[in-house]
């Protein structure tokens, strides 16, 4: 069942269309990664889903209702980002207690457990926290609220590597114990790909791909060999990335539409076949040109 349904949604800021005629459905009780480059429209999409903004065109439905200014949606949804504002009068400890009053599924045991584990000071105020500690605290609020729809927009900003690993693990464990719909935007795909079920790739305000993570990993392969050896196997429009190497060698990333026999034939001709990791693949799929930074110099 679709918990979030976007149908032909556009959102503009002055003359800049941040998302364009975008349609997609986020399925119930899945962890979906929303991946895209800086400025691709991730935050705009998430804020529109969260009901902070009204789209200029199209329809957004969350739990079958318009999320904008909607009490039912805001009671069952949390959107964690680095703009999360809490009352400056409240200490961190008091913020957790107010979370318990607002969210019916709030789990104080998890909140306090994580709070202690990450060594946060209960007497501090929200605006006194460092970047990393702020993200850590917001993440705790996001997990403990246990909302049927939980959105994390770049939740790991400022977190160091080990805190990020702990966060991914905490998210997965809590999801296993309490399945719910989670949307996670990030550009650190290689760090979190294992815990995702689905991936939505967004580029220039449009959906570029929506697949299961396991299918994405088999979406393309890298083929390296002599140009004349490779050529007969390649369909030009399937090429996602091309790199010329020395000695007339070429390394191509292509959509994996090969049969087992073709793969075997290629190997016999000494063509090297490797898989493409998800992070590289999403870079190729959202790249402006088939070249790279080297073309600038």
């Amino acid at each position: 069942m679709g918990i979030v349904i976007c149908d032909n949604v556009s959102k503009s800021f002055k003359k800049n269309r941040a998302i364009k005629n975008l349609s997609c459905t986020f399925q119930e009780n899945r962890i979906t990664g929303l991946i895209g480059r800086n400025g691709a429209g991730k935050t705009t999409l998430l804020k529109t889903i969260a009901g902070r903004w009204r789209p200029n065109e199209g329809v957004v439905k969350v739990f079958d209702e318009d999320p904008y200014d909607n009490l039912k949606v805001s009671a069952n949804m949390i959107c964690v980002n680095d703009e999360l504002v809490f009352s400056p009068e409240l200490t961190l400890d008091e913020i957790l207690k107010s979370g318990e009053m607002f969210y019916s599924n709030w789990d104080m045991e998890i909140a306090e457990g994580l709070f202690d584990y990450f060594e946060l000071n209960p007497n501090l105020y929200h605006d006194q926290l460092s970047k990393g500690k702020l993200s850590t605290f917001n993440m705790i609020v996001g997990l403990a609220s246990r909302c049927p729809l939980t959105i994390f927009d770049e939740p790991t900003t400022g977190m160091d590597y080990s805190v990020r690993q702990d966060f991914y693990r905490a998210l997965l464990k809590d999801y296993i114990n309490h399945p719910r719909t989670i949307i996670l935007s990030s550009h650190l795909l290689n760090e979190l790909e294992d815990i995702l079920e689905d991936i939505v790739l967004i580029d220039k305000g449009e959906i570029c791909l929506h697949e299961s993570m396991n299918d994405l990993k088999e979406y393309a392969i890298r083929i390296t060999g002599k140009r004349e050896d490779i050529e007969p196997f390649i369909v030009e429009e399937n090429i996602l990335h091309k790199k010329k190497l020395e000695f007339n060698l070429e390394s191509l990333v292509v959509k994996n539409e090969f049969s087992k026999e073709e793969i075997e034939q290629m190997k016999q001709r000494g063509i090297q076949i490797l898989n493409v990791d998800a992070a590289d693949l999403s870079m190729f799929l959202t790249g402006q040109s088939k070249g790279g930074i080297d073309d600038v110099f």
Partner: peptide
């Protein structure tokens, strides 16, 4: 699938596969 997901730190859907 949930035990495997926890053991290997992967999504339960991958474990189910």
């Amino acid at each position: 699938q949930y035990q495997l997901a926890d053991m290997f730190n992967i999504n339960p859907a991958t474990a189910a596969k």
